[in-house]
Design a protein around this nucleic acid. Structure first.
Lengths: 146, 146
DNA sequence: TATTGACCTAAAGTCAAGTTTAGGTGTTAG
DNA sequence: CTAACACCTAAACTTGACTTTAGGTCAATA
């Protein structure tokens, strides 16, 4: 059983944020001891799920919906499963998007390394768009296509 | 040479957003034809870089800084390179974070598939925290450690 | 006894990144 | 000639997720 301060340290989340989550109804089973919140293993697991869903790009409103489904019992297993399936898709897409971004960034790193060596961008610009070194060309193409 | 409407379609970015970027100074070389913006290859490449830096988690303010460096010329190659090196780090970290999130989500998908089969969570809960099937255990561990 | 520290609330404030509104210009189509 | 489009501006508004403020309770410590 933990105080809000302990949970704050444990998760590196400000106390104000935990109170905000509580106010938003994300801890429906949270008990109080003469006004003071008591966090248990239950809230800790909820917090792990909140963090997971937040990182997956879900907004608080939808996380609240999920929490409500959990409180409703076994009849909502289907909805909960499809939420996670949807978020799986979303995160996989986001990772792909970031891989593409990474290729653009890698290209730009190479570009500026060359520019620093050459003192200008002349030589590199002449290689565009398809005369780049063969380890660099795919990065450029990946970032510039479609 | 393109109008704002054409660029909006090309990049699937609202016209209002393009005007907002312009107002923020992200197109320092943008020319006008009696008030009307003319976007050229230059602004198109800038927009690609804006999108890239935005996806990498940079805020508009910092993108503006980068654009300013570009306008300054070869003396800022070093700063521009270190910006991209920093963003490379950031995106790589973000991808790792999302991989961890994905493991949590995969675990939850499995969890609710089982719950649907069983009609309750009894059996699964008894497997926690270290009696899970050996293809699932690593997902759970990855998501619950540290 | 007084003050410090950890907790509490409600309500207002902040921030980034746009979006919307209200009003205006200039060119083309019916 | 007038109406529909595509463009323009400045300024106010929106949204989500917090954070800050102002004021208060309660227990332990100096």
């Amino acid at each position: 059983m933990y105080t809000i301060g302990q949970i704050s340290e444990m998760f590196h989340i400000p106390i104000s944020t935990l109170r905000y989550y509580d106010k938003e109804g994300l801890f429906p089973h949270l008990q109080r001891n003469s006004g003071i919140r008591k966090f248990t293993e239950q809230e800790i697991e909820t917090l792990r799920v909140i963090e997971c869903l937040k990182k997956s790009g879900l907004e608080i409103k939808s996380i609240k919906q999920f929490i409500a489904w959990c409180a409703q019992g076994s009849e909502t297993y289907g909805q909960r499963l499809s939420l996670f399936l949807k978020q799986k898709e979303a995160v996989e897409k986001e990772i792909q998007r970031l891989e593409k971004t990474l290729d653009m960034i890698r290209f730009k790193c190479w570009y500026y390394e060359q520019a620093i060596q050459d003192g200008n961008e002349e030589r590199i610009r002449e290689m565009l768009p398809d005369q780049l070194p063969k380890d660099i060309q795919p990065l450029y193409d990946h970032a510039h296509k479609k």
